[in-house]
Design a protein around this nucleic acid. Structure first.
Lengths: 226, 226
DNA sequence: CCAAAAGCTGACCAAAAAGTCAACTTCTAA
DNA sequence: TTAGAAGTTGACTTTTTGGTCAGCTTTTGG
């Protein structure tokens, strides 16, 4: 009993991130999110997930009852990262800074988590039927909170008055696009792939246009850049 | 021979839009674009298309060799409508007006052709692998033309200098979003469905922010609206 | 009115997919 | 060391899907 702690030394036994179950589930989910992002729920075969995760199909079934279970697990896990960038929109910051850093953070997410972003885009295209009522409410609530912050800024005269919901959607759309419609961006920019520099250009452009369009004319940032 | 014209009366024979082939192909394509938009290419079964178009599966095969043929036909047909709104971006117009009417037109497209828009979104998520080289070039060329117009406006001092490509992408993204991610918009606005009024609000917001952000500070439009 | 062309479809098939399982190996705690 | 738990997997069955076809009905041009 007292020695149980010591046994941990024997074989790095139970190091949580090394456990077989954790490792294999992770492999399956990683393979699955990629496929779901490309082909959607209905378009993805369990066999493909098995191949991509380098496990026999029967082993995939050992860890997940059904394809739905994999999909639901992914939604649950990814929903947390979904709104991380929103935390930049805080009432105690100046809107100029807050919005700029939100845009930067969201674009960063688009670049480094493009797959997850596309997974959600696909689920939205599907109609969001896999989102539980609680998950929908979570999204709504988080959004409403931040919309209120924007609304307050407007009431304080720190932002021009526009519909805060649609303003928010515009921020979302402009940044999200670089993940979900990367193909279109690539065609427009005539690149085989989006580079880090492209995301910086995107950030600069979006920040300049959005801030220019929502800050009161009086206190626009210095109009020299590039 | 002379009477051939008269035979047309006999049974409205050959009225081009009434021909059986035209009618059935249209039914199949209409059903297919809906399904492809929701579930993507791999996720859509021919059987589903048959059911949705109220034709026996074998009849679907009578008109289209394969699923790919249906998909390819749709891409080809829809690609024309894809860039209609872009025609508002013309060198001989004032940027303020041109951009505003582009936004309005694109949002209108998002509202009235949401299905087609989602079909393309799905194809982009897939990586655009079904686009032919010629089709890719078409998209690139059309985009480049309009980007050049924007660039000229900037050189003439009619628009603030930002990256014209990314500026363009922003316009695209903000308007497209209301079709492809309508679910998200609905959650944000807390609506069961987007109404005409929502699209008007969206238009006002996007126009105001974008114009405010890209017109030279000197000549901003009157800041009273709503 | 009629022969040929166009359209229609139930029934069928092969391939691929989902899903199951019993026997096997590896790991773990005491 | 070892018994039981956890993990593995080839082989199997069932279901679904894409695709075919022969023979039927309808339409059409003259």
């Amino acid at each position: 009993m007292v020695q149980r702690k010591t046994t941990a030394r024997r074989r790095a036994a139970k190091a949580p991130e090394e456990r077989i179950r954790a490792r294999n589930e992770a492999a399956i989910l990683r393979a699955a999110v990629n496929l779901f992002a490309r082909k959607g729920f209905d378009g993805t075969r369990i066999t493909e997930i098995a191949e991509a995760s380098k496990l026999p199909k029967a082993n995939v079934y050992y860890y997940f009852e059904t394809k739905e279970a994999i999909y639901a697990t992914l939604i649950e896990r990814l929903l947390s990262g979904w709104d991380t960038a929103l935390e930049h929109i805080r009432a105690d910051r100046e809107p100029q800074e807050a919005i700029a850093s939100y845009i930067a953070a969201k674009l960063d997410y688009s670049r480094q988590h493009a797959v997850e972003s596309r997974f959600f885009a696909n689920e939205m295209l599907r109609g969001g039927g896999f989102l539980s009522r609680a998950q929908r409410r979570h999204i709504q609530q988080v959004t409403r909170e931040r919309v209120e912050v924007v609304e307050n800024w407007m009431q304080q005269g720190k932002l021009r008055r526009v519909d805060p919901n649609h303003f928010f959607i515009m921020l979302w759309a402009a940044t999200q696009f670089y993940a979900d419609s990367a193909e279109v961006a690539m065609m427009t920019l005539e690149r085989p792939a989006l580079r880090r520099a492209d995301y910086i250009d995107a950030r600069d452009t979006i920040v300049e246009v959005i801030l220019g369009g929502c800050l009161p004319v009086a206190q626009q940032p210095d109009p020299n850049s590039e």
